[in-house]
Design a protein around this nucleic acid. Sequence first.
DNA 1: GGGACTCTTTGATCTGCGTCAAAGCAGGTG
DNA 2: CACCTGCTTTGACGCAGATCAAAGAGTCCC
Lengths: 248, 248
Amino acid sequence: MLLDEDLHIAPNCGSCPIRHRAVCARCESTELAALEDIKFYRSFQAGQTLIWSGDRMDFVASVVTGVATLTQVMEDGRTQTVGLLFPSDFVGRPGRDTAPYNVIATTDVMMCCFRKKPFEELMARTPHIGQRLLEMTLDELDAAREWMLLLGRKTAREKIASLLAIVARRDAGLQGQVRQRQVTFDLPLTREAMADYLGLTLETVSRQISALKREGIIELAGKRTVHVPDIDRLIEEAADDADGGMPG
Amino acid sequence: MLLDEDLHIAPNCGSCPIRHRAVCARCESTELAALEDIKFYRSFQAGQTLIWSGDRMDFVASVVTGVATLTQVMEDGRTQTVGLLFPSDFVGRPGRDTAPYNVIATTDVMMCCFRKKPFEELMARTPHIGQRLLEMTLDELDAAREWMLLLGRKTAREKIASLLAIVARRDAGLQGQVRQRQVTFDLPLTREAMADYLGLTLETVSRQISALKREGIIELAGKRTVHVPDIDRLIEEAADDADGGMPG
DNA sequence: GGGACTCTTTGATCTGCGTCAAAGCAGGTG
DNA sequence: CACCTGCTTTGACGCAGATCAAAGAGTCCC
């Protein structure tokens, strides 16, 4: 049996530096105890499709370990990833019964699932959970809109830097090592998966990563392990900011 | 004084063919009667910025007439529109007190505003409203993710066709003329605003519109009025679909 | 060890869209 | 009317990133 610390009811959710947060044990431990009865676990291998777009969903779930993507595919095969799921992120929606996207494990993944009906009943009984879900959804909406800026207006280099910065932040958050200048992390995505998330081709992804390496902004150990000697320099490359002008 | 039919509490919201729906009078007329006390109206001219990114928001609001955009601007001026607001769409979020985007009127706009604090209190008293807001937010999230596919993977021509199809549908929805083969509507956006929404330049937008006109897929009367002789042909150009594969 | 994979890198070439420039076309105003 | 001013169209050209092609590198299995 798994320990509670591993679950979506993760005690660290409050300190998670990025936007997707799960229901937190700290805030509502008593209500969530009831969830114990209706939850179960599923494991998947890297590359496996957890959920196919259009599938009936009779559960909601949250990622315990690993990383998965939400992906849309056009008839002719063009693919766009519309979300990354890290540990503590939520999948599936109360009130919706077919999946709108493919959910694909990009590393080995463990999910904690809740049967949808009892979960919805619990939600009805516990307004706090609904509020939390609304807050999480708003965070996802903000993240999606930030990604729209990236897809619509950033150069290939900026896109890569943005993605690396985001993965670095989430990874650092999971390991509790926030606010350090140097970071080392494993890329949970293949070049192709990165390309699908960034609206590029895998060749362009590879070339831009090589360029960042050549310029010393990142260092690679193997293909997946990335070391960032100065995170601020990376963030600079990402052109990450979103500010309007001044009133007037 | 304005008539209730004009408001976000619009009786037609249930039949609105697209994703952003507002709180509906049909479902919860009694609770919303209380909103009468805390609401007020504001008008804006085309081109005016209603809300600046970073501004303090002490109200939430809903569009009564006209069209506005949600827009992000990078330091160097690159601009990406991340949402279109049509009549009945909602602006601002309970629980968030600064605006994350510029909200810009692209036509003359009338908004119906509610002071945030009383609105939040009402929400706490009326779980139904919270549920509705969650549902609306999920719809917006889906729309944002659909737009990510457009921004990341569609060609300029497909982008234009997609935008025209969406405006046609929303416009037709407002006028109650759903499911007709021919549609005529006014573009509520300048070429530049379209470009900012589609991740293109205004020149490319202009060229692609000219091309669609040349091929008889659309007809123009003036610069803003569009007639679509066969909506299915337009939708075909939009390459609009998002389907995964089959299970296996 | 040596295939057979899968994933990644790198090179050569092509092209869709961006950039720069100029002209057309309202609608408003003195 | 002539003259703005703001929006749109069209043309010529260049480039970032796509496409096509091939070779490297790691891992698994016999």
